[in-house]
Design a protein around this nucleic acid. Structure first.
Lengths: 194, 194
DNA sequence: GTCTATACGACGATAGAC
DNA sequence: GTCTATCGTCGTATAGAC
């Protein structure tokens, strides 16, 4: 019932392989030959589903952004206060970082601009706009100090996001769940009203 | 009086050109041909000074890290309290971001690991260790809440660093100086004792 | 839709004269 | 130290059979 009638196992296999290789070795260090070898799908088939190498990266990027957007929307429905919404976002990001590090790496850490020059930068993508919207709402409700929304949202999530990239870099030893309470305490204190 | 007797104008020209091109188009989108064309230095000369393309990137990376390290050391000498030291660091980073965006881009934003696999990630480089040392000291003095040093330093600087990357991405409209007071207020509140 | 074989261009790096 | 000319490799993408 999706727009493309046959989702095709091969197409998915290519995307899954690309996610692993792009995050492990980088986009430019991954050749189409690598993808054919690791996925077991032939060159011809790959070019049947995707225009070119960039097309593979684009499809991957958009599918991950869309997934994030849905998860964030679910959080916004599930929680009332800005405090609870934002904490749930951080908890979700921490959880994904541990269970699917490649997903997080590709979202936050891969320099899409170098191979997807047409695409908007991640930080202006839908999920990041949802994060800013939550903060905006919190300001209107008086939960968050009144100041520039961009500043507040950057400071609120900046620590957590840097914690994630540090973890992905191997600087942080323990699973992120171990730090969640402390990080959130600092983050919320940075912007909480009163 | 440096280790290499002749610093050579050509060598510097190559490094300056590489900084511009690597940050503007990315390392992999920049060919040695681009560097020869833009710098006006011939292929032969470049390979006289550097082992290979990676050698150019490495020399550039190390010179920028060294410069940062010196500037941070000067800050640590000039200020006493952790509060003042850390605020000076943020102010410095904001200033460099505006006056030499390529330097900041190359330091924070270029994925060195993809083309300098042997090098330690930026976050474990000397300047970042200096930042953690400042926080550690602040904790011992009672200026900063007692908690995991990594968490505190990540939360203290995370907002500012994300502000910088947002600015480099074009998300932030105003020069960073405009946000310095607000950002620092949030950042310090996140970790300040009492 | 899937495959193999291959064309073609671009790149990094070298050789060797000056 | 600097240059030009060139080599060999590799990677993307296509052609065309099944």
């Amino acid at each position: 019932m999706s727009t493309t009638s046959t989702p095709s196992a091969n197409r998915d296999k290519v995307l899954a392989t690309a996610l692993i290789l792009f995050t492990r070795k980088g986009y430019f260090n991954t050749s189409m030959r690598d993808i054919t070898r690791e996925s077991g799908v032939s060159t011809g088939s790959i070019y049947h589903y995707f225009r070119d190498k960039e097309g593979v990266a684009l499809a991957l990027y958009q599918s991950l952004i869309a997934r994030m957007q849905e998860e964030f929307s679910a959080i916004m429905r599930r929680h009332d206060s800005t405090h609870d919404q934002c904490r749930a976002v951080v908890a979700l990001l921490f959880r994904i970082t541990e269970s699917e590090p490649e997903v997080m790496t590709f979202m936050l850490y891969v320099k899409h601009r170098e191979f997807l020059p047409e695409e908007r930068p991640v930080c202006s993508s839908a999920p990041f706009e949802q994060m800013r919207a939550m903060v905006q709402r919190g300001m209107e409700r008086g939960e968050i100090v009144h100041c520039d929304v961009l500043v507040a949202s950057t400071c609120l999530f900046g620590g957590a996001i840097r914690m994630i990239t540090s973890r992905l870099d191997g600087i942080v030893e323990q699973p992120l769940a171990h730090y969640l309470d402390d990080v959130w305490a600092c983050s919320w204190r940075a912007v909480a009203a009163n």
